[in-house]
Design a protein around this nucleic acid. Structure first.
Lengths: 136, 136
DNA sequence: TACAAATAAGACTAAATTTGTCGTATATAA
DNA sequence: TTATATACGACAAATTTAGTCTTATTTGTA
């Protein structure tokens, strides 16, 4: 199945929310989770990952929260997906960080690998081209 | 996660195999499953689905098997995915055959829906553009 | 006609992944 | 010092995917 995971879905919702607030105001995990009826703990972890990967910045403590630093034009869907430790590799053999030999036994002799790699390249461009601006 | 399921992966392997044999010779499920070390029963079911959806044709009995009728240019990745009853809808709310209200509680007020629908349209074009020819 | 080779189809099980929860730690403004 | 917020990892539940098993049907050939 080709689809966004909940993680990605919630990340996009949150990013849209934060982006729409501009670059001055903070949004908190609680605020967003209440607004969209998303599990607070789950969303919190997602925001933490996004912060860790500099998609958003975080400030701890009272009056803290998350906000953007970068321009919405400068953050791509690729970056968001990858910062959540997710992937948009179409097949196991094309995963960047997991060239796990045991993942696919036929990888060596597989005649599908090359054609799919070409499709994958086109998909990479596809996701690189989509930015947070497209969500606003 | 954005990736092909095993079903899709195996379908593509099989389709490539069958396509490379031309339009006269039959390929059997056993032959392909042996060649690629894929579970015979699983592959058989996948080929049955493809046949049911006229991606390939099937002939029962001794000397039977599967082969192509259509030109490899005329079968798209979209069609293959859909014939397996899989989907490439990015979010639950964008699924063609399942406008299941309970799938997403916030679908009505969701501000992400429209931007994602635009991305989805671009993805549809992406998959419509890829044909079996790209696997050969 | 009997048999072997092949597709057809559905129910069931096992494995893997995803989703969500819980507990604890740390930082900070008031 | 307390309330509010992020940070992080372990665990549990739920869902989905992958694979197996069984039975039926079709068809060429010895």
């Amino acid at each position: 199945m080709i689809k966004f995971s909940r993680k990605t879905e919630y990340a996009l919702i949150a990013i849209q929310y934060i982006a729409n607030k501009g670059i001055t105001e903070f949004s908190t995990a609680k605020e967003i989770s209440d607004n969209y009826n998303i599990s607070y703990e789950l969303l919190a972890k997602i925001l933490q990952r996004l912060a860790k990967n500099n998609i958003i910045t975080s400030t701890k403590g009272v009056n803290g929260g998350y906000k953007f630093l970068k321009s919405p034009d400068d953050v791509t869907l690729s970056e968001i997906i990858e910062s959540l430790n997710e992937s948009y590799a179409l097949t196991r053999c094309l995963k960047k960080n997991r060239p796990n030999k045991t993942d696919c036994q036929i990888a060596d002799c597989c005649t599908l690998k090359n054609p799919v790699a070409i499709i994958q390249n086109r998909l990479n461009i596809f996701f690189d081209d989509i930015t947070i601006r497209h969500l606003m």
